[in-house]
Amino acid sequence: MWTIAKLTFKEIVSKRIFLITMIMTAVFLILYGVAIHYAVKDWESFGASTVDQMMQQQLFSSQLLSIGLYFSSFIVALLTILSSVSAIASEIESHQIDTWLMRPITRTQFLLGKVIGLGGLLITYAALLFAGIIMLHQGIGGEVVSLDFSISQIASALATYMLQPLVLVTLGVMLSSRMTSLNAGIVLIILYGSAFIGGFVEQIGTIMEKGALVNIGIISSLIFPVDAMYRKMTVFLFETADNPVSLAQQGMFASASAPNNVMILYTIMYGCVALVLAITLFRKRDV
């Protein structure tokens, strides 16, 4: 199992899609850093700040960080989807799995090795990207743009942020164990997009006090809890729960309807169920 995990790790790193993602990640971080640099430069040109200017500065700073975290989660999800949907299907399509299954290794060990290798790589990537966004915002921003975060806020937000690729990996491998890479990718992308649309609908419904819209968002979170984890991450980081000022500062990326802590447990169980289903489906599949 651990041999499969190591080989999976090396295989993903050697793929062109990983190299492209790393290049685009570097470009994203550079552009994000440049944006912060010029934001700081513009604010410093005002000289002494009035109360209104300081409030606008805080508003812009929070929104800038929220935008960075939102699009970074999209990058992580894209890499996770493209990597996980071919984990099993590509081995079957190329008949390379025949070589593996002839060795003294069970299908369960093979699949778990794939999940461990993929999960370890993508969780590490997500953690580094999250840290990069925070450090760029706090480091380049200085006293002008940086926000006051405690260690517990960052740790809680990071842990929740890393749950997103973990759920995507388990579900991606589950689909890959039954479908082709293309079909699994289409299904997972649709689920991912639907979850984020449902999340925005829920936020709008909460602000407008429309119960039907809120219920749509809750149902979409139960079907696919990735967006709920993103929203929970913003709650941990910005402490937006029951805080109208913080909600206003983040704008459209805020969490007006914050998932409770039970949703974290549900997400972990969701990933475990997806993993069990993946093992069951792979055992029954004729290769």
Rank of each mutant, 00 (worst) to 15 (best):
G120P: 04
L168E: 09
F130Q: 06
V201P: 02
G119A: 10
T170P: 04
A212G: 09
L112K: 09
A159Q: 04
L175T: 03
Q138F: 04
L168N: 10
T180W: 05
L166A: 15
L182H: 12
S152Q: 13
G119N: 03
F149K: 06
M174K: 10
I189M: 14
L118Y: 01
I154H: 00
I219F: 13
T170V: 03
A127S: 11
F110P: 06
T124G: 15
T124D: 07
G117H: 03
I190R: 06
L111Y: 08
G205V: 01
I207R: 15
L213C: 04
G120M: 08
E209Y: 12
Q109P: 09
M174N: 08
S176W: 05
F200Q: 13
L129D: 02
I216H: 00
F196Q: 05
I154Y: 00
T170C: 11
S146F: 01
G117W: 05
L213Y: 06
L168W: 10
I189C: 11
L136P: 07
F200M: 13
A127Q: 03
G113H: 04
A184P: 09
V167E: 07
L163D: 03
V115C: 08
Q109M: 11
L158H: 04
L222I: 09
G199A: 02
G199Q: 03
Y161T: 02
V115S: 09
S221Q: 10
I204Y: 12
I204S: 12
S221C: 01
A155W: 09
T206E: 15
T206W: 13
G205W: 03
P165K: 04
T106H: 03
G199S: 05
G217T: 00
G119M: 08
N215T: 13
F224D: 01
V169E: 05
G172K: 02
L163E: 02
G132E: 09
V145L: 11
A184G: 15
E209G: 06
I116C: 10
G193M: 12
L136I: 15
S194C: 12
H137C: 07
R178Y: 12
A212T: 12
T160M: 12
D148W: 12
E143D: 15
G132Q: 08
N215A: 15
H137W: 07
S152G: 07
Y192G: 03
I154E: 01
Q164K: 13
K210C: 11
G211S: 15
I140V: 14
L136E: 10
K114H: 03
I219P: 06
